[in-house]
């Protein structure tokens, strides 16, 4: 009995020592080494692929953001600023609840199921809004033209991209609001459409932040 307690103790001690040694290897040396190389070789990317416009950092090309009008009094949800290309809905995003000294974005999805009435309601509302917002005097949006990504929230809530179809849908509205020719805006979208990596990996997409930065430049020139 005493013997087995000693043995167990010795075994646990060996286990602890193994853990500490491996923590040094995997938990200290490995991440520091990777960080060192990454910072040296891929400094911008390792720090979040930030985008600058007009001398200021305007966000990360990888992290989606909202393009909304400032909250009016009494409003709970902000209205989209229709001058700019709009991103996907992000109903799953949360705010930090633990250390409230930060205003962290909590990435996340809605996790609603396909038969959930809430989700059906959200999709329907988004669809109506997209149709209403994007219908201009010269351009009428058909319900069938609204792509799925325009009315659903992404997995992270931070999807920086929209589908080319959703960008195309917004071209008339954005052109009208920015007093630009539709064709020029369409060209802009085309220029900012990323195809699939190597032609087959992932999906074609348009980075909203980059597109809006370019739009702002175009509008400023025009």
């Amino acid at each position: 009995m005493n013997n087995s307690v000693t043995n167990t103790g010795r075994l646990l001690w060996a286990g602890l020592r193994a853990l500490l040694v491996l923590t040094l290897a995997c938990g200290v040396i490995y991440p520091l080494a990777v960080t060192g190389v990454a910072q040296a070789l891929f400094h911008d990317k390792a720090n979040g692929s930030e985008i600058r416009s007009e001398g200021k950092v305007v966000g990360s090309s990888l992290i989606g953001q909202r393009y909304d009008l400032p909250l009016k009094k009494g409003q709970e949800t902000a209205e989209p600023d229709l001058k700019w290309f709009q991103p996907r809905p992000s109903n799953g995003l949360g705010e930090n609840t633990v250390n409230t000294r930060y205003k962290l974005i909590l990435s996340g999805a809605t996790n609603l199921s396909g038969d959930n009435k809430d989700l059906i309601g959200q999709v329907r509302a988004a669809q109506q809004a997209v149709i209403k917002d994007n219908t201009t005097a010269t351009y009428e949006v058909d319900k069938a033209d609204v792509p799925a990504d325009a009315v659903t929230s992404s997995g992270s809530g931070l999807d920086p991209d929209i589908s080319p179809a959703y960008a195309e849908l917004q071209v008339h509205r954005v052109a009208e609001r920015n007093h630009l020719p539709v064709n020029e805006v369409r060209q802009l979208v085309k220029a900012h459409t990323d195809g699939r990596v190597l032609g087959f990996m992932g999906e074609p997409r348009v980075n909203v932040l980059e597109l809006n930065v370019a739009l702002r430049d175009l509008a400023a020139k025009g």
């Binding site: 996907r88 999805a109 609603l112 069938a144 792509p147 799925a148 992404s154 997995g155 991209d161 997409r205």
Partner: peptide
């Protein structure tokens, strides 16, 4: 209704 199962999925 949405025309695709994109809820919870990323565009890329």
């Amino acid at each position: 209704l949405a025309g695709g199962a994109m809820e919870g999925k990323e565009n890329r």
